[in-house]
Computed example of a mutant assay.
Amino acid sequence: MADTAPDTSWAGATETRFTALYRLLVGHPGLIAMCGDRPWLGPQLLRRLVETQLAHSLAADMTPKQAIVTYRRLYLLPLGSASYINHRDPKDSRALTRQALAALDPDDFPVLTRRLGTVGAATADPEVYYGALRQLIDAANRANSSARRPKAIVETSQVHGKRDREEAGPTSTVRRYFATLPPSSPQRSLFGLFPNLLPAGLLPP
């Protein structure tokens, strides 16, 4: 498993770790078969990948739940990608895919049979994995950044949103109207007799 420098960003270190895991599994497909349906709980994997990744996520201000859920998503991606086909022989994998698709009835599978080349090329394209990995990392980064918005900013935003709604509503329109009237006007006096026409605190001075 690849090591990263202490000052590497969370995104950079995460991409390095899960790229290394993917390459390890692609290069040694027997590891997946050997594991079977048992979870990988060996001390080497736990120390060099799981513990390290979780610690880095917590240091990036993720909550424990965010850290483990993000790890599981990142971990399942290379596991599934590596076990899907034999990446050590991509030409053979593409040929098998094209052969299987060519045997399909075009009336039943019009999308697949008309795009044999495109589907076959993507079958063993490693960029499919790398692109998906970057998307997962970017999504986790955005979610974590949103969760870490300072409370004061969130509260200010909520207050401004409430104020905007009030200023656009009918209650505010009535309030502004009465505020323009002279204190001695009959309309203003009438409003003073029925303060419940507006919510508490909105009675014009």
Rank of each mutant, 00 (worst) to 15 (best):
A140W: 01
P110T: 10
L24D: 14
I85L: 15
A103Q: 15
P205H: 05
A152F: 08
H160T: 12
T118D: 13
V26E: 11
T156F: 11
F18K: 04
L116A: 06
E127P: 00
E51Y: 05
R73Q: 09
L31Q: 06
M34K: 05
F18D: 02
L46A: 15
F194I: 10
L104M: 14
T171R: 05
G161S: 13
T16K: 07
E51G: 00
L190D: 08
R149D: 03
R17K: 09
S81V: 12
A5Q: 15
D107W: 03
T16P: 00
G120V: 02
P186F: 10
D7A: 12
A143W: 05
Q135G: 09
P110E: 13
P110F: 10
Q53H: 15
P39V: 06
P204Q: 00
V154Y: 00
R114S: 12
G42T: 15
L54N: 05
T118R: 15
P29K: 02
R175M: 12
L74D: 04
Q99W: 07
L74T: 01
T19V: 08
N141M: 12
L193G: 03
L136D: 10
L46M: 15
F109E: 03
Q158P: 02
T97H: 11
Y22H: 14
A20C: 11
A100G: 07
K91Y: 01
L79T: 08
E155S: 15
L193F: 03
H56K: 08
M34Y: 00
S81A: 14
N86D: 09
T8L: 12
H56F: 06
P205N: 10
G169Q: 07
S9I: 07
Q135S: 11
L58I: 07
P78T: 04
A140E: 14
L96I: 02
T118N: 11
G131R: 15
V111Q: 13
A59P: 01
S185T: 07
A168Y: 06
G161D: 07
D37F: 12
G36P: 10
S83K: 15
A102R: 14
G27P: 04
E51H: 02
F191N: 01
L76T: 12
V174C: 05
G201V: 05
L112E: 15
N196E: 14
T123E: 03
R175T: 05
H160D: 13
